[in-house]
Design a binder for these strands. Sequence first.
DNA 1: TGCTAACTGAGGCACGTACCTCATAGCAAC
DNA 2: GTTGCTATGAGGTACGTGCCTCAGTTAGCA
Lengths: 349, 349
Amino acid sequence: MRPTTKDLAKAAGVSLATVDRVLNGRPGVRKTTVEAVNEAIERIGFERNLSAANLARGRSYRLEFLLPKQGDQFLDTLLDRVDEAQSAFAAEATFVRCRRAVDTDPHQIAAMLGRITREDTDGVALMAPDSPQVRDAMLRLHERGVKVTALVSGHSGELPIDFVGVDNAAAGATAGRLVGQFCGGRTGKILVVSDTMMTRDSVERRHGFDSVITADYPGLTALPTLETYGDPDRACRIVGTAFRNHDDIVAAYVLSSEARLSLEAIRNERDLSSLVTLAHERTQYTQAMLMTRALDAVIAQNPGHLVRSAIRVLRARCDNREPLASQETIRVEILLKENLGQTTDDPPD
Amino acid sequence: MRPTTKDLAKAAGVSLATVDRVLNGRPGVRKTTVEAVNEAIERIGFERNLSAANLARGRSYRLEFLLPKQGDQFLDTLLDRVDEAQSAFAAEATFVRCRRAVDTDPHQIAAMLGRITREDTDGVALMAPDSPQVRDAMLRLHERGVKVTALVSGHSGELPIDFVGVDNAAAGATAGRLVGQFCGGRTGKILVVSDTMMTRDSVERRHGFDSVITADYPGLTALPTLETYGDPDRACRIVGTAFRNHDDIVAAYVLSSEARLSLEAIRNERDLSSLVTLAHERTQYTQAMLMTRALDAVIAQNPGHLVRSAIRVLRARCDNREPLASQETIRVEILLKENLGQTTDDPPD
DNA sequence: TGCTAACTGAGGCACGTACCTCATAGCAAC
DNA sequence: GTTGCTATGAGGTACGTGCCTCAGTTAGCA
């Protein structure tokens, strides 16, 4: 049988009350006594029974995901995973809500953050552009005692705020390496397209991508990033112009999480299988494109893991614990046709 | 507040005792009453409080990992992860032990399995060669009421036994695709090396690899698998012979989880950076080789996830639940220098 | 020496579920 | 009407921890 607090009390030669004070960091215990209890913990190998603790505490965590409204497929999967988490974590007294910003306007998002209070929310996971207004609102929210973490895309500056997502510079570098290798010695230009460069993830990916290409593939040149702003007409126009200006485009890299718009614009101009093409995030669309080999590879992050990780980080913060860094690192995944797996939805944690 | 069993009893118009009988599938309840309770569960959205249930039940799971003794690095990481799991799952009344077969001999392993009883073990995760003796012993163990799952490498035949590991055919196919793409149109032979082809994972990887190479890269030919049997001298000898017999080797693929032996044998003959090289599993060695780009890519499976997944599957079986298939799929990971991450040890779940 | 403040012990209730016993109601067969 | 059976209710204890109160002890200080 595992030792209980009772055993611990006996072993440390103190009462249950004192054990309780030490275990829960409550005041009113002499230093020497604290040490005696800690020594006894080591000695008899005491481990808190989490089930009992949770039960007794009756504590609950009210968490909120705040996501952009734009309807790309990656976001849809993310929403599905939040839904899943909702029921999965309910058994652990963790209640997850999800709201989508009505607007991508930073002021709007900042205003939404401003309306959140400790009364109804313990923690917030936010996916939003990197702007001063948003940063400011996050900071104020944090000061009001609501725990905050950035999701998928980080924020500049020294914020006392966690980040749950991939290392986007590494993701970009990975894309760079794959494009470089897949081009196999060919020389020419690389088309780089994104919805917007307003988010930090896009900027970081671009940097990572460039660093590999310029260092190791002198025959390849990455063109300046084209921004579609989510507008199909604009996408076709600027992509068309790029192809007219450069007749030696050998590869295309779509930075942003919404690949479809950009890729379809490119497909208007060229047969995708004649180019080396890379995109981000596993969606119905990118999976289908991988299967037909119109896409050569996809750089992805696991949405389910993102969501669960954000929840774990926020819960840890609510308990004033440090989140386990190693546990919460999100991997940069590389997907080919061959390792997609059977399922449409994202695999495990 | 979440509804409790008491609320459920009231809602269903029955007593707590009956609710308990229904929830735990105990006999002595009329069909119509069972239905009434189930209806009430739906209606009021009752969810069992796991913490309370575990506490009250005081149930524990005694699980055992049985791993081969040979000391390759992948196995070492796996052992580390089992150690980690040991403490991580202790909070959930799950006690994990780990033994290493004293011998790789199937009879020996079968004998070890034969000695396991329900008295001290609820479930076993086994990593062993695919042999009739082992299969038989697994089956008998299963019949004795001990839950069994195969780890990393599966077993042929229709066993009533779970498998936790990657789809090795897909892993091989992924390797094939990468080798093909990285060769970038070059023609020649591919060296394929393994410790042994006695394990099912090696055989499946080879099949997957061949299927992609023959289908999509007619200029490349994969040579017959060289088996080192873990013997450095033998490795050097057979690899040397291969290079003497074929002067157009452009790539090398190491099938087995121990890459070092084979790669060093190859390094004796050629500068690794002049070949496209792929190996399996993330180890200190393969990571270092990736960093120097002596290896072009590594196909990996997450050891931490393997261990946790095996534990979850066994626990589910102990409770006569179905494991959540989607949750337990192990991904085929592709590692390049760029997406290794910072940490030496394996990341998250 | 007394006083105060900090520390400690004893005990109890609560959390939600599991599992036990015992009583009783209903029903059917003889 | 007795017996035997099943279905159900009522009530209890237990699990290990959190958190509370209150009384009692000790240490430090004037």
